[in-house]
Simulated assay, not measured.
Amino acid sequence: MTAVVLAGDFPSTGILQATVAYRVGLDGGDEACAAFIDHVAYALGQRGAVLVVYPSWKGERARRMVRLARSALLTDRVAGVPLDVPPLALSLIADQLAFASGYARPGVLASLAGRLCESVYAGAWVNSVARMEHIKTGLGAHVSSYLPGNGFAVSAGPRPAVHRISASRPVPEPATRPADPVLMLFGHENGDVEWLQHRLRPVIGAVSVTAVAAQPMSAEYWGTRKYAEFVAFSGHPQALQSLLAGSPYRSCGWCGEPTALPECPFCFMVQPGPDAAPAPGPAAGRAS
C-alpha cells in the first residue's frame, strides 16, 4: 500500500471518513522540516511508499520538503505530486487517492491523481476577480469587478474560465461534468449560497449538495473573502475503478514502477512513448 500525505493547511472534507490522507503542515522553520521528515519516515515504514500531494500554485516549500525527505531518508520511494486545483477539490482528491491506495501500486496511484483532477468540476462564485492570481482572467473581467453586479462564476481545473453572472445567463455551460450520480460539496465565506443551490445545482444535475467547512487557503486562492467554493464529483461506486483502468500503464525502465506519466514520479526517469509494452494491471502487486 501507499501512504498519501497532503502537505499544507487543507483539512479533510469529512466525506470519506474511513480512509483519508495524512495532513502535514508546512509552516514554521527547522521544526516544521523535522516534523515533516519524521511523518514521512513513519508513513514510509508503515506503507513502503509515500505520495506527497501539494498544490502546484503554492508548491515551492513542499517541493523542497520532498527533496529533503528523500535525501535525509536515503530513499526514492517518496514522490511529490503537485496538483493544479482549488483548495476544496485538492482536499477531496487527496482523500480519494488515500481511499484508492489499497487497490493500486504507488506509480499507478500517482498517475491517478491527474485523472481525478480532470474528473471533477471545481470552481466558485466570487464577488470580484480583481485580485485573482491563480486563474487567468481577462482585462474586461478585472474592470467589471469594480462595477455593481451579481458576481462571477469561476471554473478551475483543466479548462479554467471566468463568467460574469447576469440575469440572462446566470450560469455558464460546464466544460466538463462528472458521471452520474453527481455529488457536490461547497464551503463559503460570505458567498452566494443561493446561486450554488438554485442556479448551479440544476445545471450540473447534482443529486446532493453538502456544506463543509471553508478551507483555510480558499480566500488566498480566489483572491477575495467573499466566495462560495464548490467541487462536483461522481458518486458512482465504480468511478475510481474506471479511472484506474482507463490509462495505459508501463513499467519504468529504471525502477520498474508502473506509471502512465511522462516521467516516473519516484526515480524521475523519462518514460518511453506509447508504443512501448504496457505494464501489468493497476492492482498488480503491492507497494514495496
Rank of each mutant, 00 (worst) to 15 (best):
P82V: 10
P82H: 06
V85H: 02
L88E: 06
S91Y: 07
A94M: 08
L97P: 00
A98E: 00
F99Q: 15
S101C: 04
S101L: 01
G102Y: 03
Y103H: 15
A104C: 14
L112S: 04
R115D: 15
C117F: 04
E118N: 04
E118M: 03
V129G: 06
A130G: 07
H134P: 00
K136L: 03
A141F: 10
A141V: 11
H142S: 02
H142M: 04
S144W: 09
S144K: 04
Y146V: 00
P148T: 04
F152I: 13
V154I: 06
P158Y: 08
R159K: 08
R159M: 08
P160T: 10
A161Q: 03
H163G: 03
S166Q: 09
A167R: 11
P170Y: 05
A175P: 13
A175C: 10
T176R: 13
A179F: 11
V182T: 08
V182S: 09
G187K: 00
E189K: 14
G191S: 10
W195F: 04
L196Q: 06
Q197A: 10
L200I: 05
V203S: 00
G205K: 00
A206H: 13
V207I: 12
A211N: 10
A211E: 14
V212R: 02
V212Y: 06
E220N: 03
Y221Q: 03
G223C: 01
